[in-house]
Design a protein around this nucleic acid. Structure first.
Lengths: 175, 175
DNA sequence: GTAATATAGTTTCTTATGAAACCATTTGTC
DNA sequence: GACAAATGGTTTCATAAGAAACTATATTAC
Protein backbone atom coordinates (compact mmCIF):
# COMPACT_ATOMS: atom_id res chain seq x y z
CA UNK A 1 0.00 0.00 0.00
CA UNK A 2 2.96 2.28 0.39
CA UNK A 3 5.11 3.97 -2.15
CA UNK A 4 7.40 2.01 -4.40
CA UNK A 5 9.43 3.12 -7.33
CA UNK A 6 6.71 3.04 -9.88
CA UNK A 7 3.50 3.57 -7.97
CA UNK A 8 4.76 6.51 -5.96
CA UNK A 9 1.38 8.05 -5.38
CA UNK A 10 0.73 11.28 -7.20
CA UNK A 11 4.05 11.92 -8.87
CA UNK A 12 3.78 9.47 -11.69
CA UNK A 13 0.17 10.29 -12.26
CA UNK A 14 0.11 14.02 -11.92
CA UNK A 15 3.56 14.93 -13.13
CA UNK A 16 2.16 15.90 -16.44
CA UNK A 17 -1.25 17.08 -15.32
CA UNK A 18 0.29 19.03 -12.46
CA UNK A 19 2.06 21.42 -14.76
CA UNK A 20 0.69 24.85 -14.12
CA UNK A 21 -1.14 25.97 -17.22
CA UNK A 22 -1.52 29.35 -15.53
CA UNK A 23 0.04 32.74 -16.13
CA UNK A 24 3.81 32.97 -15.74
CA UNK A 25 4.59 29.39 -16.54
CA UNK A 26 8.36 29.56 -16.19
CA UNK A 27 10.30 26.37 -16.86
CA UNK A 28 9.69 24.75 -13.50
CA UNK A 29 12.48 22.95 -11.70
CA UNK A 30 11.19 19.51 -11.04
CA UNK A 31 12.72 16.71 -9.07
CA UNK A 32 11.41 13.21 -9.29
CA UNK A 33 12.22 11.98 -5.83
CA UNK A 34 11.39 8.41 -6.72
CA UNK A 35 14.38 8.52 -9.04
CA UNK A 36 16.62 10.47 -6.70
CA UNK A 37 19.08 8.09 -5.14
CA UNK A 38 19.67 9.86 -1.83
CA UNK A 39 15.96 9.97 -1.18
CA UNK A 40 15.29 6.37 -2.13
CA UNK A 41 18.23 5.09 -0.18
CA UNK A 42 17.34 7.09 2.84
CA UNK A 43 13.75 6.04 2.92
CA UNK A 44 14.64 2.40 2.51
CA UNK A 45 17.31 2.54 5.19
CA UNK A 46 14.93 4.36 7.52
CA UNK A 47 12.26 1.75 7.16
CA UNK A 48 14.64 -1.10 7.70
CA UNK A 49 16.13 0.65 10.68
CA UNK A 50 12.67 1.26 12.14
CA UNK A 51 11.82 -2.41 11.90
CA UNK A 52 15.03 -3.57 13.49
CA UNK A 53 14.88 -0.93 16.16
CA UNK A 54 11.45 -2.14 17.13
CA UNK A 55 12.82 -5.65 17.43
CA UNK A 56 15.79 -4.61 19.58
CA UNK A 57 13.67 -2.38 21.74
CA UNK A 58 10.76 -4.72 22.33
CA UNK A 59 12.71 -7.80 23.12
CA UNK A 60 16.00 -6.57 24.52
CA UNK A 61 15.40 -2.97 25.44
CA UNK A 62 18.41 -1.64 23.60
CA UNK A 63 18.54 1.15 21.05
CA UNK A 64 20.38 1.35 17.76
CA UNK A 65 23.49 2.98 19.17
CA UNK A 66 23.78 0.33 21.86
CA UNK A 67 23.17 -2.42 19.35
CA UNK A 68 25.99 -1.14 17.19
CA UNK A 69 28.41 -1.07 20.06
CA UNK A 70 27.50 -4.63 21.00
CA UNK A 71 27.75 -5.85 17.44
CA UNK A 72 31.18 -4.39 16.97
CA UNK A 73 32.28 -5.88 20.24
CA UNK A 74 31.01 -9.26 19.11
CA UNK A 75 33.44 -8.86 16.32
CA UNK A 76 36.48 -7.37 17.93
CA UNK A 77 36.38 -8.36 21.59
CA UNK A 78 38.37 -5.29 22.50
CA UNK A 79 37.58 -1.81 21.34
CA UNK A 80 37.69 1.81 22.35
CA UNK A 81 34.93 4.38 22.08
CA UNK A 82 36.93 6.27 19.52
CA UNK A 83 37.15 3.32 17.19
CA UNK A 84 33.45 2.73 17.47
CA UNK A 85 32.91 6.33 16.49
CA UNK A 86 34.88 5.94 13.31
CA UNK A 87 33.47 2.54 12.44
CA UNK A 88 29.86 3.49 12.94
CA UNK A 89 29.99 7.16 12.00
CA UNK A 90 28.28 8.01 15.26
CA UNK A 91 28.92 11.10 17.32
CA UNK A 92 31.22 10.58 20.29
CA UNK A 93 28.60 11.80 22.72
CA UNK A 94 26.17 9.26 21.38
CA UNK A 95 28.73 6.50 21.70
CA UNK A 96 29.63 7.63 25.18
CA UNK A 97 26.00 7.39 26.26
CA UNK A 98 25.50 4.01 24.64
CA UNK A 99 28.60 2.63 26.31
CA UNK A 100 27.52 3.96 29.67
CA UNK A 101 24.07 2.45 29.35
CA UNK A 102 25.48 -0.91 28.38
CA UNK A 103 27.92 -0.83 31.26
CA UNK A 104 25.13 0.08 33.69
CA UNK A 105 23.23 -2.94 32.50
CA UNK A 106 26.24 -5.15 32.91
CA UNK A 107 26.46 -6.07 29.25
CA UNK A 108 29.94 -4.69 28.76
CA UNK A 109 32.76 -3.59 31.00
CA UNK A 110 35.49 -1.03 30.68
CA UNK A 111 39.04 -1.12 31.85
CA UNK A 112 41.49 1.72 31.54
CA UNK A 113 44.04 1.01 28.87
CA UNK A 114 47.54 0.30 30.17
CA UNK A 115 49.13 2.40 27.49
CA UNK A 116 46.90 5.43 27.64
CA UNK A 117 44.98 6.52 30.69
CA UNK A 118 42.48 8.48 28.60
CA UNK A 119 41.34 5.38 26.81
CA UNK A 120 39.02 2.68 28.05
CA UNK A 121 39.13 -0.77 26.56
CA UNK A 122 35.66 -2.17 26.09
CA UNK A 123 34.71 -5.82 26.43
CA UNK A 124 31.57 -7.88 26.49
CA UNK A 125 30.59 -9.43 29.79
CA UNK A 126 29.20 -12.97 29.82
CA UNK A 127 25.74 -11.41 30.09
CA UNK A 128 26.53 -9.36 27.00
CA UNK A 129 27.66 -12.41 25.10
CA UNK A 130 24.54 -14.20 26.14
CA UNK A 131 22.31 -11.43 24.90
CA UNK A 132 24.14 -11.39 21.59
CA UNK A 133 23.90 -15.14 21.30
CA UNK A 134 20.18 -14.67 21.27
CA UNK A 135 19.90 -11.44 19.32
CA UNK A 136 22.39 -12.05 16.53
CA UNK A 137 20.67 -15.09 15.02
CA UNK A 138 17.37 -13.25 15.11
CA UNK A 139 18.85 -10.28 13.33
CA UNK A 140 20.41 -12.53 10.73
CA UNK A 141 17.19 -14.39 10.20
CA UNK A 142 15.34 -11.15 9.72
CA UNK A 143 17.91 -9.96 7.24
CA UNK A 144 17.66 -13.25 5.38
CA UNK A 145 13.92 -12.80 5.07
CA UNK A 146 14.39 -9.26 3.86
CA UNK A 147 16.76 -10.21 1.09
CA UNK A 148 14.90 -13.38 0.21
CA UNK A 149 13.61 -11.82 -2.99
CA UNK A 150 17.08 -11.01 -4.23
CA UNK A 151 19.08 -13.53 -6.16
CA UNK A 152 22.60 -14.28 -5.04
CA UNK A 153 23.89 -12.16 -7.87
CA UNK A 154 21.62 -9.26 -7.06
CA UNK A 155 22.65 -9.42 -3.44
CA UNK A 156 26.32 -9.37 -4.32
CA UNK A 157 25.84 -6.56 -6.80
CA UNK A 158 24.00 -4.54 -4.21
CA UNK A 159 26.92 -4.74 -1.82
CA UNK A 160 29.29 -3.92 -4.62
CA UNK A 161 27.29 -0.87 -5.56
CA UNK A 162 27.17 0.29 -1.95
CA UNK A 163 30.92 -0.15 -1.71
CA UNK A 164 31.45 1.94 -4.79
CA UNK A 165 29.16 4.65 -3.53
CA UNK A 166 30.95 4.78 -0.21
CA UNK A 167 34.29 5.13 -1.86
CA UNK A 168 32.99 7.79 -4.18
CA UNK A 169 31.55 9.63 -1.22
CA UNK A 170 35.01 9.66 0.30
CA UNK A 171 36.44 11.04 -2.87
CA UNK A 172 33.82 13.75 -3.18
CA UNK A 173 34.17 14.71 0.45
CA UNK A 174 37.88 15.27 0.12
CA UNK A 175 37.95 16.88 -3.32
CA UNK B 1 40.53 6.51 5.20
CA UNK B 2 37.17 5.45 6.46
CA UNK B 3 35.56 2.08 6.57
CA UNK B 4 34.59 0.27 3.43
CA UNK B 5 33.37 -3.21 2.94
CA UNK B 6 36.70 -4.90 3.03
CA UNK B 7 38.99 -2.61 5.00
CA UNK B 8 36.53 -2.08 7.83
CA UNK B 9 39.11 -1.28 10.46
CA UNK B 10 39.62 -3.96 13.05
CA UNK B 11 36.97 -6.47 12.07
CA UNK B 12 38.64 -7.96 9.06
CA UNK B 13 41.96 -8.05 10.79
CA UNK B 14 41.09 -9.18 14.27
CA UNK B 15 38.08 -11.37 13.63
CA UNK B 16 40.25 -14.40 13.91
CA UNK B 17 42.82 -13.06 16.33
CA UNK B 18 40.13 -11.53 18.52
CA UNK B 19 38.72 -14.89 19.43
CA UNK B 20 39.08 -15.36 23.12
CA UNK B 21 41.46 -18.21 23.70
CA UNK B 22 40.58 -17.93 27.38
CA UNK B 23 38.62 -20.15 29.75
CA UNK B 24 34.95 -20.64 28.98
CA UNK B 25 35.24 -20.15 25.24
CA UNK B 26 31.60 -20.68 24.34
CA UNK B 27 30.71 -20.51 20.67
CA UNK B 28 30.56 -16.76 20.45
CA UNK B 29 27.75 -15.11 18.52
CA UNK B 30 29.46 -12.92 16.01
CA UNK B 31 27.98 -10.46 13.61
CA UNK B 32 30.01 -9.09 10.77
CA UNK B 33 28.42 -5.69 10.43
CA UNK B 34 30.22 -4.99 7.19
CA UNK B 35 28.17 -7.81 5.68
CA UNK B 36 24.95 -6.91 7.44
CA UNK B 37 22.68 -5.15 4.98
CA UNK B 38 20.72 -2.95 7.38
CA UNK B 39 23.93 -1.60 8.83
CA UNK B 40 25.61 -0.98 5.50
CA UNK B 41 22.56 0.59 4.01
CA UNK B 42 22.00 2.80 6.98
CA UNK B 43 25.53 4.03 7.18
CA UNK B 44 25.63 4.81 3.48
CA UNK B 45 22.29 6.59 3.57
CA UNK B 46 23.37 8.55 6.64
CA UNK B 47 26.51 9.76 5.02
CA UNK B 48 24.77 10.79 1.86
CA UNK B 49 22.08 12.49 3.86
CA UNK B 50 24.67 14.34 5.93
CA UNK B 51 26.36 15.65 2.82
CA UNK B 52 23.16 16.83 1.22
CA UNK B 53 21.89 18.29 4.46
CA UNK B 54 25.02 20.34 4.74
CA UNK B 55 24.44 21.62 1.24
CA UNK B 56 20.80 22.52 1.88
CA UNK B 57 21.56 24.10 5.21
CA UNK B 58 24.60 26.12 4.23
CA UNK B 59 23.27 27.57 1.05
CA UNK B 60 19.53 27.68 1.52
CA UNK B 61 18.96 27.27 5.23
CA UNK B 62 16.45 24.46 4.91
CA UNK B 63 16.49 21.10 6.61
CA UNK B 64 15.79 17.67 5.23
CA UNK B 65 12.11 17.67 6.08
CA UNK B 66 11.59 21.03 4.43
CA UNK B 67 13.58 19.93 1.43
CA UNK B 68 11.37 16.90 0.97
CA UNK B 69 8.23 18.96 1.11
CA UNK B 70 9.60 21.34 -1.49
CA UNK B 71 10.76 18.53 -3.73
CA UNK B 72 7.38 16.85 -3.68
CA UNK B 73 5.71 20.13 -4.41
CA UNK B 74 8.00 20.65 -7.36
CA UNK B 75 6.51 17.48 -8.62
CA UNK B 76 2.85 17.74 -7.80
CA UNK B 77 2.07 21.42 -7.59
CA UNK B 78 -0.75 20.69 -5.21
CA UNK B 79 -0.47 18.50 -2.17
CA UNK B 80 -1.70 18.01 1.34
CA UNK B 81 0.32 17.35 4.46
CA UNK B 82 -1.15 13.90 4.72
CA UNK B 83 0.05 12.89 1.29
CA UNK B 84 3.51 14.12 2.08
CA UNK B 85 3.48 11.98 5.18
CA UNK B 86 2.76 8.84 3.24
CA UNK B 87 5.12 9.65 0.38
CA UNK B 88 8.06 10.50 2.59
CA UNK B 89 7.38 8.24 5.55
CA UNK B 90 7.74 11.21 7.83
CA UNK B 91 5.80 11.76 11.02
CA UNK B 92 2.87 14.13 10.66
CA UNK B 93 4.24 16.41 13.35
CA UNK B 94 7.48 16.70 11.47
CA UNK B 95 5.67 17.49 8.26
CA UNK B 96 3.47 20.01 10.02
CA UNK B 97 6.53 21.83 11.32
CA UNK B 98 8.29 21.77 7.99
CA UNK B 99 5.23 23.15 6.24
CA UNK B 100 4.86 25.89 8.78
CA UNK B 101 8.49 26.90 8.48
CA UNK B 102 8.27 27.01 4.71
CA UNK B 103 5.13 29.09 4.86
CA UNK B 104 6.73 31.50 7.31
CA UNK B 105 9.56 31.96 4.88
CA UNK B 106 7.17 32.56 2.03
CA UNK B 107 8.33 29.58 0.02
CA UNK B 108 4.95 27.89 -0.02
CA UNK B 109 1.39 28.91 0.71
CA UNK B 110 -1.62 27.07 2.00
CA UNK B 111 -5.21 27.43 1.11
CA UNK B 112 -8.06 25.60 2.74
CA UNK B 113 -9.40 22.93 0.48
CA UNK B 114 -12.82 23.62 -0.94
CA UNK B 115 -13.95 20.08 -0.39
CA UNK B 116 -12.68 19.50 3.11
CA UNK B 117 -12.12 22.22 5.66
CA UNK B 118 -9.64 20.14 7.60
CA UNK B 119 -7.29 19.96 4.67
CA UNK B 120 -4.92 22.59 3.37
CA UNK B 121 -3.74 22.50 -0.18
CA UNK B 122 -0.07 23.33 -0.44
CA UNK B 123 1.53 25.19 -3.29
CA UNK B 124 4.88 26.68 -4.10
CA UNK B 125 5.12 30.45 -4.17
CA UNK B 126 7.23 32.11 -6.88
CA UNK B 127 9.97 32.45 -4.27
CA UNK B 128 9.72 28.74 -3.62
CA UNK B 129 9.95 27.95 -7.29
CA UNK B 130 12.93 30.22 -7.58
CA UNK B 131 14.72 28.50 -4.75
CA UNK B 132 14.05 25.13 -6.30
CA UNK B 133 15.22 26.33 -9.68
CA UNK B 134 18.56 26.90 -8.05
CA UNK B 135 18.65 23.97 -5.66
CA UNK B 136 17.36 21.16 -7.85
CA UNK B 137 20.11 21.31 -10.47
CA UNK B 138 22.71 21.39 -7.72
CA UNK B 139 21.21 18.34 -6.07
CA UNK B 140 21.07 16.52 -9.37
CA UNK B 141 24.63 17.42 -10.18
CA UNK B 142 25.75 16.15 -6.82
CA UNK B 143 23.88 12.92 -7.29
CA UNK B 144 25.41 12.53 -10.74
CA UNK B 145 28.86 12.87 -9.25
CA UNK B 146 28.00 10.36 -6.57
CA UNK B 147 26.87 7.70 -9.01
CA UNK B 148 29.56 8.49 -11.54
CA UNK B 149 31.40 5.29 -10.68
CA UNK B 150 28.39 3.11 -11.38
CA UNK B 151 27.69 1.87 -14.86
CA UNK B 152 24.24 2.39 -16.30
CA UNK B 153 23.44 -1.23 -15.61
CA UNK B 154 24.68 -1.08 -12.05
CA UNK B 155 22.65 2.04 -11.46
CA UNK B 156 19.50 0.44 -12.82
CA UNK B 157 20.11 -2.75 -10.84
CA UNK B 158 20.58 -0.75 -7.69
CA UNK B 159 17.16 0.85 -8.08
CA UNK B 160 15.66 -2.50 -8.88
CA UNK B 161 17.14 -4.03 -5.78
CA UNK B 162 15.87 -1.17 -3.64
CA UNK B 163 12.43 -1.61 -5.11
CA UNK B 164 12.45 -5.29 -4.30
CA UNK B 165 13.58 -4.65 -0.77
CA UNK B 166 10.86 -2.07 -0.23
CA UNK B 167 8.21 -4.45 -1.43
CA UNK B 168 9.58 -7.23 0.69
CA UNK B 169 9.58 -4.92 3.66
CA UNK B 170 5.89 -4.32 3.06
CA UNK B 171 5.26 -8.01 2.94
CA UNK B 172 7.20 -8.73 6.11
CA UNK B 173 5.54 -5.86 7.94
CA UNK B 174 2.10 -7.19 7.18
CA UNK B 175 2.76 -10.90 7.64
C1' DG C 1 61.50 19.99 32.18
C1' DT C 2 57.79 23.24 30.91
C1' DA C 3 54.52 25.35 28.12
C1' DA C 4 51.45 24.71 24.12
C1' DT C 5 48.67 21.68 21.53
C1' DA C 6 46.12 17.55 20.61
C1' DT C 7 43.26 13.65 21.90
C1' DA C 8 39.72 10.42 24.46
C1' DG C 9 35.85 10.83 26.66
C1' DT C 10 32.08 13.21 29.55
C1' DT C 11 28.81 16.72 30.51
C1' DT C 12 25.89 20.62 29.54
C1' DC C 13 22.88 23.02 26.56
C1' DT C 14 19.96 23.38 22.62
C1' DT C 15 17.33 21.59 19.14
C1' DA C 16 14.88 18.02 16.45
C1' DT C 17 11.84 14.30 16.71
C1' DG C 18 8.07 10.97 17.83
C1' DA C 19 4.13 9.83 20.80
C1' DA C 20 0.22 11.11 22.50
C1' DA C 21 -3.25 14.53 23.61
C1' DC C 22 -5.91 17.62 21.39
C1' DC C 23 -9.08 20.41 18.11
C1' DA C 24 -11.86 20.86 14.12
C1' DT C 25 -14.25 18.83 10.58
C1' DT C 26 -16.18 15.05 8.12
C1' DT C 27 -18.29 10.58 7.47
C1' DG C 28 -21.18 6.95 8.81
C1' DT C 29 -25.15 5.02 11.44
C1' DC C 30 -29.41 5.07 13.29
C1' DG D 1 -30.80 15.47 11.91
C1' DA D 2 -28.03 13.72 16.09
C1' DC D 3 -24.54 10.99 17.86
C1' DA D 4 -20.40 8.10 17.31
C1' DA D 5 -16.36 7.15 15.02
C1' DA D 6 -12.69 8.49 11.89
C1' DT D 7 -9.47 11.81 9.77
C1' DG D 8 -6.30 16.01 8.85
C1' DG D 9 -3.60 18.77 11.26
C1' DT D 10 -1.50 21.21 15.46
C1' DT D 11 0.35 21.41 19.98
C1' DT D 12 2.36 19.61 24.14
C1' DC D 13 5.51 16.69 26.35
C1' DA D 14 9.37 13.56 26.84
C1' DT D 15 13.47 11.92 24.87
C1' DA D 16 17.44 11.39 21.73
C1' DA D 17 21.08 13.54 19.40
C1' DG D 18 24.61 16.94 18.01
C1' DA D 19 27.55 21.12 19.21
C1' DA D 20 30.32 23.00 22.07
C1' DA D 21 32.44 23.45 26.57
C1' DC D 22 35.04 20.92 29.70
C1' DT D 23 38.34 17.39 32.12
C1' DA D 24 42.12 14.58 32.15
C1' DT D 25 45.87 12.63 29.94
C1' DA D 26 49.38 12.52 26.21
C1' DT D 27 52.33 14.52 22.85
C1' DT D 28 55.12 17.99 20.79
C1' DA D 29 58.13 22.03 20.64
C1' DC D 30 61.32 24.55 22.79
Amino acid sequence: MEVDERSSGEPGASAGAGRDAGPGSLPRAELDLSQFLPYRLNRLADRISDELERMYAERYDINVAQWRVLAWLSHCDELTAKKICTYTNMDKARVSRAVQALEDRGLIYREPSVHDQRVHDLHLTPAGEELLASLVPEAQAWEAELVATLSVGEYRDLFNAMGKLERQLERIGQG
